Computed example of a mutant assay.
Amino acid sequence: MRYFDFHTHAFTDALAQRAVKGLADTSGITPATDGTLSGLRRKMAENGIERAMLLPVATKPSQQTTINNWAAEVMSSDIYCCGSVHPDAEDALEELVRIKSLGLCGVKFHSEYQFFCPDEKKMFPIYEKIAELGLIAVFHGGWDPYSEDTIRATPKSFAAIAEAFPKLTIVAAHLSGMGLWDDVEKYTAGKYDNLWFDVGVVSRYIEDDQLLRIIRSQGADKVLFGSDCPWDEPANEIAMIGRLPLTDEEKELIFHKNAERLLDIQ
Rank of each mutant, 00 (worst) to 15 (best):
L93H: 09
E94K: 12
E95R: 12
L96H: 05
V97N: 08
R98V: 08
R98I: 07
I99P: 06
I99D: 14
K100F: 07
K100C: 02
K100W: 11
S101L: 13
L102A: 06
G103M: 06
L104M: 10
G106Q: 03
V107L: 11
K108P: 00
K108D: 00
F109L: 11
F109D: 01
H110W: 15
E112G: 02
E112H: 12
Y113K: 01
Q114G: 04
F115I: 14
F115W: 10
F116C: 04
P118E: 10
K121L: 11
K121I: 04
K121S: 14
K122S: 12
M123C: 10
M123G: 06
F124P: 03
I126A: 01
Y127N: 03
Y127P: 04
Y127V: 04
Y127G: 01
K129V: 00
L133Y: 10
L133H: 12
G134T: 12
I136T: 12
V138S: 06
F139L: 00
F139M: 01
H140A: 04
H140T: 00
G141D: 05
G141E: 02
G142T: 05
G142E: 10
G142R: 02
W143G: 00
D144F: 01
D144S: 09
D144N: 14
Y146W: 10
E148R: 07
T150S: 11
I151Y: 05
T154F: 04
T154A: 02
P155C: 03
K156N: 06
S157H: 06
A159E: 04
A160V: 00
I161G: 10
E163P: 00
A164G: 07
P166G: 06
P166E: 09
P166D: 13
P166H: 09
P166N: 11
K167H: 15
K167F: 10
T169V: 13
